[in-house]
Computed example of a mutant assay.
Amino acid sequence: METFAKRLKGLRKEKKQTQAQMADYLQCSLRAYQYYESATHYPEIPDLLKLADFFGVSTDYLLGRSQERLAETRGRADT
Results as ranks from 00 to 15, higher is better:
3 T>K: 07
41 H>Y: 15
4 F>W: 02
30 L>Y: 15
17 Q>F: 14
3 T>R: 04
7 R>S: 07
25 Y>I: 06
28 C>F: 11
16 K>T: 15
30 L>G: 06
37 E>F: 02
34 Q>F: 08
12 R>C: 03
30 L>P: 01
23 A>E: 01
39 A>T: 07
43 P>V: 06
29 S>Q: 06
4 F>P: 01
8 L>V: 03
8 L>H: 02
22 M>N: 07
27 Q>I: 10
34 Q>K: 05
43 P>Y: 02
42 Y>K: 01
20 A>D: 07
38 S>N: 11
41 H>V: 11
10 G>S: 09
9 K>D: 11
35 Y>F: 05
42 Y>A: 09
28 C>P: 03
17 Q>M: 15
24 D>L: 02
28 C>R: 10
2 E>C: 05
5 A>I: 06
26 L>Q: 04
19 Q>L: 11
10 G>M: 12
15 K>P: 10
23 A>P: 00
8 L>G: 03
40 T>W: 09
15 K>R: 14
11 L>E: 05
22 M>T: 04
42 Y>E: 05
28 C>V: 14
42 Y>N: 06
38 S>K: 15
6 K>Y: 13
35 Y>L: 12
34 Q>Y: 14
34 Q>L: 06
41 H>W: 01
37 E>W: 03
20 A>T: 10
10 G>D: 09
34 Q>D: 13
11 L>S: 03
42 Y>P: 09
29 S>A: 12
11 L>A: 02
41 H>F: 13
21 Q>D: 13
22 M>H: 05
31 R>E: 14
2 E>D: 12
15 K>Y: 12
35 Y>N: 15
42 Y>W: 02
21 Q>C: 08
23 A>M: 03
31 R>I: 13
35 Y>W: 07
2 E>F: 06
4 F>G: 04
41 H>E: 13
21 Q>L: 11
18 T>M: 09
34 Q>M: 09
